[in-house]
Design a binder for these strands. Sequence first.
DNA 1: GCCAACGTTGGC
DNA 2: GCCAACGTTGGC
Length: 148
Amino acid sequence: MNYWLLKSDVADYPITQLKKDKKTLWTGVRNYQARNYMTRDMKVGDLALFYHSGEYPGVVGVAKITKKAEPDPTQFLKSDSRFDPKATKEKPIWFSVEVGFVKELKNLVSLDVMRKTKGLETMLVLKRGNRLSITPVTEKEFSLVMGI
DNA sequence: GCCAACGTTGGC
DNA sequence: GCCAACGTTGGC
């Protein structure tokens, strides 16, 4: 089983929305590395730290992968901001996994606190200039964050 | 609002 | 294939 960190802009899709939806298709990823994590490495049952970017950046909850990657429908929609003219139904470029709500943390584990926590120095999301919206997390890092 | 980081695009 | 220009992300 693998662990992940899923970044979501709090203004676009906060954890409270996932809580309401119970599950959602993780659409809109337009980065090849992040896509490859979804198509190659994510398995049903994997757990993910749900991270808010934007105001009060940090981990706010836990989600799980509930369905393996399928073509991201937004790439085909002309009206969608994530429309990709190069993608076709026969040859989709972008994929989405389904993500289920697990829990919302009582307290935000802020980016600031994560930076100061011994053992989390290796977390990719803390690396300078990191913009990947999906990053792998070790079991150790996952449980350390959960223990804060 | 600023700006560093960095992925992508396109001219050559 | 190189690399400058450009657009986006995201912390501050």
